[in-house]
Design a protein around this nucleic acid. Structure first.
Length: 601
RNA sequence: GCCAGCGUAGCUCAGCGGUAGAGCAACUGAUUCGUAAUCAGUGGGUCGGAGGUUCGAAUCCUCUCGCUGGCUCCA
């Protein structure tokens, strides 16, 4: 039935060795997991008769099965179910494929009280319907499956959650039990270890531990409070962002956070865009918090006549927008209601399109590399069934996107018909230190707004022409990108980003003065340095600095004071011996200037 | 928004009808110390909020706010 194959690196190792399949020549993790899902359903029906089963596919990291039952499954239930599954594995029950006429299948499942299955068979089944049976448990399923339950050795149930029958919010709510399964014990352990590692990197946990950001009930859900340490990081990100954009020929805009609702009527957002906060009134005029920056940039474009000579215009803004995300989807910094896009709009002629796309792609690659992201996947989405703009424009723009990618020798995947209705787009997904993918960069053509705002420029021929409008973000949103950075680095930010770059630790009171002198010296050079002159033992101060993940730790005592040196300790590395102050300063300045990700002292 | 779970000190958690607790952190004092936790003491809570049941509620019930895991959405 419904199956998707995962692509996580962790799973690639999982390959069957001696398992034989009923009817598949190429056994895969997907088949194993699909069979594990059946095993789960069998166990649930054994323990909780009268439960209706929904669908149970293999998914990216495991499998799930949906159940319809009055009472919720408790964590204890989950344990009992997993226990029952292990028993069924021990019994090594054969899994058989049976093919029966559709009418017979319908009757079969009706007799078992499995109405959801009946619905599926009626809709999806052909004349002959394939089912899989393991003892009394029968499932409507295309397969393939493993030959017997004994082959499903290494699995674990992970969680239970809600899901709608067939994804329809109005339909019945089912309970979904998630689990994972692997061919070897080692693979399972690796995956569980991966989950634990992800838990430890969770930016929400690190955000609190490292005093980076918080949310407050009084302020509101999804509204981020950036603390001073996060502020330091954000400033580095923004400074670098400005520098790269300036070098790449962008100019910078600033626009308001609210506008008359009429703006959003013109843009079409009121009609099509669901994530807008409700409008509010002042002096009888309706205003709206901005969910996007585009209309403002467009109004600046329209503030005077534009000539073909003016193009391309590259206008960028770190623009804070507000979107009403449904309460259930909010998630730390990764899904919020107020966020700052690293937005830009490029207005260009058709003959400039390919060049502009090319520039954006290389800007994105350059910037993401600087932040330490080297792995990425590119996706080109083409014209969907419902679209605005002319077919000709779509083709031309899609070709330009494609050529820009090809010219740089980048491999990419084409998502046919997956574009948004207003234009084709390129999305980039970066890979973090755990191999997880995050979408950040997006480059989208927009035929809709160009038309709705009737954008034009005067061509060489003296006639009005419609410019191409490119909407793009490199980092996506600063909040989300910050969250990704925290998880990628596990809070161990490289020197140039670290909120506190250096902690100076005097051993005794008599070293405080020298410590302060050093601190002044480093701060004058723009280094975020602090002194820890608490009356604690040096081991304690070192522990504090290490836990705060400060990259450079300087220890000073009698020896250093006398020789005007410092003892260097590098976070996560350890003692790196005595250094002359000037030599260390130069070294650190270079590392910061180069935005070094890894460094050797 | 929906389903389920969870909200007790700044953090991690115990207590689950009978006078609110521990560790860490904070603060005060002593210790002046060489590469991941010195010792002692002190303060800190309308147990997320509102209502109800009860002689009595952190504990039971209802509503509400927030968080978590999913679903769904992301023109």
């Amino acid at each position: 039935m419904e199956t998707r194959i995962g692509s996580m690196a962790q799973e690639k190792k999982g390959r069957p060795q001696e398992q034989k399949l009923v009817d598949s020549p190429a056994p895969s993790l997907e088949v194993l997991r699909h069979s594990a899902a059946h095993l789960l359903a069998q166990a649930v029906l054994d323990l909780f008769p009268g439960t209706q089963v929904g669908i149970g596919p293999a998914v990216e990291n495991g499998f799930y099965y949906d159940f319809l039952r009055d009472k919720p499954f408790t964590p204890e239930d989950l344990e009992a179910i997993e226990q029952r599954m292990r028993e069924l594995v021990k019994e090594d029950i054969p899994i058989e494929r049976i093919v029966i006429p559709k009418a017979e299948a319908i009757k079969l499942f009706q007799d078992m009280g499995q109405e959801l299955k009946v619905e599926l068979i009626k809709e999806k089944g052909g004349d002959q319907v394939s089912c899989y049976r393991q003892r009394s448990f029968i499932d409507f399923c295309l397969g393939p499956h493993l030959p017997s339950t004994g082959a499903i050795k290494y699995f674990k149930l992970l969680s239970v959650s809600g899901a709608y029958w067939r994804g329809d919010e109005r339909g019945p709510q089912l309970q979904r039990i998630y689990g994972t399964a692997f061919f070897t014990k080692q693979d399972l352990e690796n995956y569980l270890h991966f989950l634990e590692e992800a838990r430890q990197r969770d930016h929400r946990r690190l955000g609190a531990d490292l005093d980076l950001f918080s949310f407050d009930e009084l302020v509101g859900p999804g509204l981020v409070l950036w603390h001073p340490k996060a502020g330091a990081i954000r400033k580095e990100i923004e400074d670098y962002w400005h520098e790269e954009h300036f070098q790449d020929g962008y100019e910078f805009l600033y626009t308001p956070h609210i506008a008359k609702l009429d703006v959003w009527r013109t843009s079409g957002h009121t009609e099509f865009y669901e994530a807008m906060f409700p409008p509010f009134q002042s002096e009888g005029i309706e205003y709206e918090l901005k969910p996007m920056n585009c209309p403002f940039h467009i109004m600046i474009y329209k503030s005077r006549l534009r000539s073909y000579r003016d193009l391309p215009l590259r206008w960028a803004e770190l623009g804070t927008v507000y979107r009403y995300e449904r309460s259930g989807v909010l998630h730390g910094l990764l899904r919020v209601r107020g966020f700052t896009q690293d937005d830009a709009h490029i207005f260009c002629r058709d003959d400039q399109l390919e060049e502009e796309i090319t520039r954006v792609i290389s800007l994105a690659l350059r910037m993401l590399r600087t932040f330490g992201f080297v792995g990425y996947d590119l996706f080109l989405s083409t014209r969907p069934e419902k679209y605005v703009g002319s077919e000709e424009d779509w083709d031309q723009a899609t070709q330009a996107l494609k050529k820009a990618l090809e010219k740089q020798g980048l491999s990419f995947q084409i998502d046919e018909g997956e574009g948004v209705f207003y234009g084709p787009k390129i999305d980039m997904k970066i890979k973090d230190a755990l191999g997880r993918s995050w979408q950040c960069t997006t480059i989208q053509l927009d035929f809709n707004l160009a038309e709705r705002f009737d954008l034009s420029y005067t061509g060489e021929d003296g006639q009005p022409h419609r410019p191409f409008l490119i909407h793009r973000a490199i980092l996506g949103s600063l909040e989300r990108f910050f969250g990704i950075l925290i998880e990628h680095y596990k809070g161990n930010f490289p020197l140039w980003l670290a909120p506190v770059q250096m902690s100076i630790l005097p051993i005794a009171d008599r070293h405080n003065e020298y410590a302060d002198q050093l601190n002044q010296l480093f701060r004058r050079e723009g280094i975020r340095s602090v002194v820890n002159s608490r009356r604690e033992k040096i081991g304690h101060k070192i522990r504090e600095a290490e836990m705060a993940k400060v990259p450079v730790i300087l220890i000073i005592g009698d020896r250093e004071l006398q020789k005007e040196t410092v003892s260097l300790r590098v976070h996560t590395v350890g003692d790196k011996g005595e250094w002359p102050v000037s030599k260390l300063l130069e070294k650190i300045k270079i590392l910061i200037k180069n935005k070094a990700i890894t460094y050797d002292f």
